[in-house]
Deep mutational scan, measured.
Amino acid sequence: MIFPGATVRVTNVDDTYYRFEGLVQRVSDGKAAVLFENGNWDKLVTFRLSELEAVK
């Protein structure tokens, strides 16, 4: 189960963010908004829950 605050990895091989890890900001309607941070940039991207896996 994916909840806000969880760290997730993108599993969709066709996505630009494949294998990126980010922090879930919100979850609704089968989608999750994931925040990616890297140095001087932040990006908030929405994914279907089926495209994400929780990082242990």
Rank of each mutant, 00 (worst) to 15 (best):
R19A: 12
F47W: 01
D29A: 09
A54D: 06
D29K: 08
T11V: 12
T16F: 13
T46Y: 12
V27Q: 03
L23K: 13
K43Y: 10
A6P: 01
G30H: 06
W41N: 11
L44S: 06
V45Y: 05
V24L: 03
A54N: 10
V45F: 06
V27H: 01
T7R: 14
A54L: 15
K31C: 11
D42I: 15
I2Q: 01
R19M: 15
L23D: 03
D14R: 10
T16A: 14
K56R: 11
G5Q: 03
I2T: 02
F36W: 02
V55T: 07
G39L: 09
K31G: 06
K31W: 15
M1E: 13
V8D: 01
E21I: 14
V55A: 05
L52H: 01
K56M: 13
G22T: 01
F20R: 13
V27G: 00
F36A: 00
G22H: 00
G5C: 07
V13N: 06
R9L: 06
D42K: 15
P4N: 05
D15P: 03
K56T: 13
L23N: 05
D29P: 05
V13E: 11
T16I: 14
A6Y: 08
E53L: 07
N38L: 14
Y17H: 09
V8W: 00
T16Y: 14
T46E: 14
N38E: 10
R26Q: 13
L23V: 15
K31D: 06
R19W: 09
L35S: 07
F20V: 07
S50A: 09
E21S: 07
E37Y: 12
E21M: 09
I2H: 02
R48P: 14
F20I: 07
T16V: 14
W41S: 12
Q25A: 09
L52K: 01
T46P: 04
E53N: 04
G22M: 02
V55G: 03
T11I: 14
V45W: 04
G5E: 02
Q25S: 06
A54I: 15
F36T: 00
T7D: 02
W41M: 12
T16L: 13
E21Y: 09
L23C: 07
S50C: 08
A33H: 11
E37P: 11
A6M: 14
G30M: 05
D15A: 10
M1P: 12
Y18G: 04
